[in-house]
Every structure is written in C-alpha cells, then in structure tokens.
Design a protein around this nucleic acid. Structure first.
Length: 270
DNA sequence: AGCTTCGCCTGCTTGC
DNA sequence: TGCAAGCAGGCGAAGC
C-alpha cells in the first residue's frame, strides 16, 4: 500500500533515469486503468519528460512542451524503468499492465496484481478539484488543518485518510501518526481540532523517518530497483495488535474505523 | 454537505 | 492435503 513515503522513494529513484527521456510508444492492457476524464497515453508520444514529482500518494510526470501523467499506485501498484527486452526478477508478467516506451531502449513498466491503481493523462489539471488531492502534511499548516477539523464530526482516523484534507497519509501512517500524537482514532475531528499542530508535527516526523528508511514493505511494495523498504520494522502500532505498547506496555488493540483496520494503544491515546 | 458502506480486485491466510 | 471462505485496503460511487 504505497503511501507518501513509498511514493517519494519511488519518485526519487525514477527521476534520474526518466528526466530528458522522450516517449516513443505506449500500451495499456485495461482501459479501466484510466481514471475518469483521462486522455490516453498516446497523447504523450513524442513528448519529453521534464520532471518526476510526487503529489500526495501519486507519482507525476510533467512533459514538455506540455502534458502530465498522474499515476496512483492503489494498493499494489509498482513502477520501474528497465530496458525493453529485460524481464525483471520477481515480477509476474501477468501483472504487467502498462508499458511506456522511451528513447534509449528504455521503458516504464507498471505492475499491479490487484489493479486498484489509476492513470490520469491531461494537458493540465487542478489537483484539488479533479483528483481530490489536498496539501500533504509538509505543505499544510496548523491553521489550515484546525479550520477544517473544527467543524467535522467524523473520527479523526477517517479524516486523516481523506486525501482532500491531507494527501499522502494512508492506513499505516494514519495509525502511526495518531499513536505518535497520542490521539485516539475515534475522536471526532472537532474534538481534536485544538491538537492540529501536534497531529501535523507527528505526521511529519513519522513520514520523514519512513522516507529515510525507504518506506514500509509489507508484501507488494518495492522500490524502483526492486529492493524493499525497511520502515515496517519501526511500526509502533500497525500490525502489532496484542503486543505491548512501547510507552506503557498495554496491549495494542485493533478495531475497524472507516472500514479500515485501526491499531492503537487504548491507554495512552486519548 | 457530511458521513458511512459498498464494490472493485486478487493473493495470502485461516478454518474445516 | 485441499478447498472455500475470509481478509487486506485506496478510492470512487452510492445511499442515507
């Protein structure tokens, strides 16, 4: 489940091999991989990759003279760059859904077992309205978050997962952020609005440290070169139900919030 | 409008 | 051992 740290890691790895490359051809196996309103990948042929960026949990390529490609990796999406005739180890060809041919005999490959990912091609795009991407925790400030939380009654866990409010946080880092901030996941937004600054500080600390470790690899996620992230070793609550809280020893509990498995310490998160 | 639930999708785990 | 059911969840759509 690639979240901000995983996508940031992938994007950093793809930048050097991709910038200045020109698209020569493109094949996509399922039209359903396009997000609603997207142009086709063919629109990008003969355009040159100008930059490789991260927007929330999405990888984005900007092209010259114009155009952009936003890739959402869903839960199990994988991006890599390789030679056209190469078959990377550990990747099942039946999950290869998109190939974008480049000059220098390179190509971008998109593997995705569950096909929850989406491609979006456009000349330009308003991320907030067209793609539901708000500021990420490094861009947002305390006042912004507080103003939104103040009049929301949904559990803070659900609000942290809402990409329109803050982008980049998924299930793992929502739980880790709430633990770090000592905020209980079922607290309504309005009840924790005062703690918006703490939440942002915690999110940044968690995300920053995860990026330093190349993200978390649970099963499918791999870095652009096929290696695994290491941050899963530092998870304080995610996937640790039943074991002791690192701060107080109380057993970590797992409940369902907003349809997601939610892990927290019932004693030190209030 | 805000909140919750559902469905997409398939590999892995669990239970009989 | 083998098979079916259950579980995982990002995100958009539907329902309330």
């Amino acid at each position: 489940m690639p979240e901000l740290p995983e996508v940031e890691t992938i994007v950093r790895g793809l930048r050097a091999p991709l910038v200045e490359r020109t698209v020569t051809n493109a094949r996509i196996r399922h039209r359903a991989l396009y997000r609603r309103g997207s142009l086709t990948l063919r629109h990008l042929i003969d355009r040159k990759i100008e930059s490789v960026e991260r927007i929330g949990k999405n990888a984005m390529l900007r092209f010259s003279p114009s155009g952009l490609l936003v890739i959402n990796l869903g839960m199990t999406g994988n991006l890599l760059v390789c030679r056209v005739d190469e078959s990377p180890p550990g990747r099942n060809p039946k999950h290869l859904h998109v190939r974008i041919g480049l000059d220098h005999d390179l190509e971008i490959r998109y593997y995705d077992p569950r096909r929850f990912g989406h491609f979006y091609v456009a000349e330009q795009c308003d991320f907030a309205t067209e793609l539901n991407i708000g500021p990420d925790p490094f861009e947002a400030d305390r006042r912004y978050l507080r103003a939104i939380l103040e009049h929301r009654g949904a559990p803070i866990k659900a609000l942290l997962l809402d990409q329109r409010i803050l982008s980049g946080i998924g299930n793992i880092y929502a739980d880790e952020t709430l633990y770090h901030a000592r905020v209980a996941p079922l607290n309504p937004g309005e009840a924790v609005a005062r703690r918006a600054g703490t939440l942002l500080t915690s999110a940044r600390a968690i995300l920053h440290r995860a990026i330093e470790h190349g993200g978390s690899t649970l099963r499918d996620y791999r870095r652009h070169d096929g290696s695994r992230g290491a941050y899963q070793r530092f998870h304080a609550v995610y996937g640790r139900e039943g074991s002791g809280c690192q701060r107080c020893g109380t057993a970590i509990r797992k409940i369902v919030v907003a349809g997601r498995g939610t892990h927290f310490c019932p004693r030190c998160q209030k």
